[in-house]
Design a protein around this nucleic acid. Structure first.
Lengths: 344, 344
DNA sequence: GTGAAAGCGCTAACAG
DNA sequence: CTGTTAGCGCTTTCAC
């Protein structure tokens, strides 16, 4: 028995052509809804294709037509909730187009990002959506020369290669710092992550520190963790910091999940959350709605960033002027873990 | 100025060949690390490719070699945490191989799944990983005939097309029901989702109901929600059910997040959680570690399911016997929202 | 409205 | 170790 006869051999246009008695070219037209084909011929082709279970070969199609309906999407991680949210936004928009996302995770490693990017560009995608503005020299060169729309998402603090969509994390951090000052907190503790490649968390902290410094508020303590962000980590760190620096009156977490853990811990300890002790996180995770208190946080508008990025790639977005940067406004959500503003 | 001269024109092997003075074929060999090439020639080629910024065209390569390093991954949603977790497991394993995942979301819609599958199969991927065992007739036919490994993940209750990896949700539900009975609860309330296509949640409930019925324990109330699962939804539902059926002594949530919301609500109400009122969720979300109480739950071993599925597709997994079904054991985690077993 | 010929950029197979 | 030849399965282009 020859290999040709196994069911694992893919059908070709030729098979459909022979089965329907219509030329390959016309079969191709029918299957792509291109050009005028008589209803009779069309019916014959559709019937044959369906009966045989023909699945077109996009590889060949893409090579011949020089068109690929793939969009490369590159994010640091899938374990951190924020990225699936961006992807969900992308997916939602692309679902209404012929485009399809291809996802790659870099694990916050610029070298891995470079490799993934190279790999993906070799599929000649119709667009690239990539998290952040920081990339290796080589990555930037590839992006600059790939000839398709490139959208850097989730950050606008820097020079985009082509287009950028997201919030300014520096500005968002600054805003939180301003709120802290306006509410009269005097000794701030910072609880962040050790991850080197997390430029956005770093920028948030920088913005926050700037606002504090302008208001002569010291950063009383700073603690960085590594590993997975969850409630437990937030609890641990909060406990440790409160023991090490008992007089902090505000805790800022770069991440809502650790913030929520800190909140739960503080409440259990009977601390005066929202009064003597202020707490704030970052990202406004929807799933946290319904905690005993609403943690103060900032909506980083990830889903929208994904949506707009997808629209840019799909050619369905009009920029405001000639700046291909779309700065979304991070919404500060005071919740009830802060005391009132002294002045308003 | 002709289009040929713009930087958007992709380079070809021929360009590298001309720039290096080496034949296209040898250039191809060098760039793929195939066959023996002298160090001198290799160096010339590598230099030219790098200098020009050549990015190979995998479309053409795939067509010529009939090999595609893409793996189709199809899940219902990216908004429900469980799926990114499976994908993370897949990604982790594939990162060590030449394979690359392509993600598609179906939004729990079988028709959308069928379309996505068709779309993906037309790229002739090296494997398919798809959530669940329930698909349309047409989808099943495509999967059965696509000629590459097909792994259905996250469920083993049913007939796999090729391979299947995951837990038995029916058995997991049954186990929870048994625990409920062993701990002497008598009136159980069920809090689930309305989503039609969520077969796994349905199977959990079925298994649970069976165990209860075998122990003559009635399902005292049943409530289904639609929309996004978060703490808030769990609170609402719990409140509503406790008002409607005040004498329930156990609440089972098909999802940990709603369960956690219910837990927080119950604690605030001063209910005797872990005593008179038992609570359990499902999925063992790591991020919830650190709640005021540990919600009883079941680890559905999603990440491992993804890892094993990826290994199967990568040809790096040996089945135990001739059954291409890998049943993972769901781990019951009692936490401290249940009272003690009456007998042990 | 339909068909025939050429070729997309690469690799398999073979020859040297 | 290196080169030549012949496609992969489609779509483009042009002819009818």
């Amino acid at each position: 028995m020859t290999r040709r006869n196994t069911r694992h051999q893919h059908l070709t246009l030729r098979d459909v052509s022979e089965a329907s008695g219509v030329s390959e070219m016309t079969v191709s037209r029918v299957l792509r809804n291109r050009g005028d084909v008589s209803d009779k011929t069309r019916a014959k082709v559709v019937e044959a294709a369906k009966r045989l279970g023909y699945v077109p070969n996009k590889i060949a199609g893409a090579l011949a037509s020089n068109r690929v309906n793939l969009v490369a999407v590159i994010v640091p991680s899938l374990s951190n909730l924020v990225f699936p949210e961006v992807i969900a936004g992308i997916d939602e928009v692309l679902a209404d187009t012929p485009l399809q996302p291809v996802i790659g995770a870099t694990n916050y490693d610029p070298e891995k990002e470079e490799k993934t990017l190279f790999e993906m560009l070799s599929w000649r995608p119709s667009g690239v959506i990539i998290a952040g503005l920081e990339h290796t020299e080589a990555s930037r060169a590839m992006l600059a020369n790939c000839g398709v729309p490139v959208v850097e998402v989730m950050d606008v603090d820097g020079d985009p290669i082509d287009a950028a969509v997201g919030i300014s994390h520096r500005r968002a951090g600054y805003q939180v710092g301003t709120e802290i000052a306006a509410r009269g907190y005097k000794r701030v503790g910072l609880l962040g992550t050790k991850v080197d490649g997390d430029h956005r968390a770093r920028k948030r902290i920088e913005g926050l520190e700037q606002a504090l410094s302008e208001n002569n508020i010291p950063v009383a303590d700073h603690m960085a963790y590594s590993g997975w962000s969850g409630f437990a980590k937030g609890r641990e760190m909060t406990k440790a910091m409160l023991e090490r620096t008992p007089d902090v009156d505000f805790l800022f977490y770069t991440n809502d999940l650790t913030g929520a853990g800190g909140l739960l811990y503080a409440l259990e300890q009977g601390l005066d959350v929202g009064g003597g002790l202020g707490l704030a996180g970052f990202n406004a995770f929807e799933l946290l709605d319904g905690l005993p208190r609403n943690l103060a946080t900032v909506d980083s508008r990830r889903r929208e960033a994904g949506q707009i990025a997808a629209r840019i790639v799909a050619g369905d977005y009009t920029f405001d002027g000639d700046d291909r940067r779309v700065e979304l406004t991070p919404t500060f959500i005071a919740g009830n873990t802060l005391r009132n503003r002294l002045t308003d």
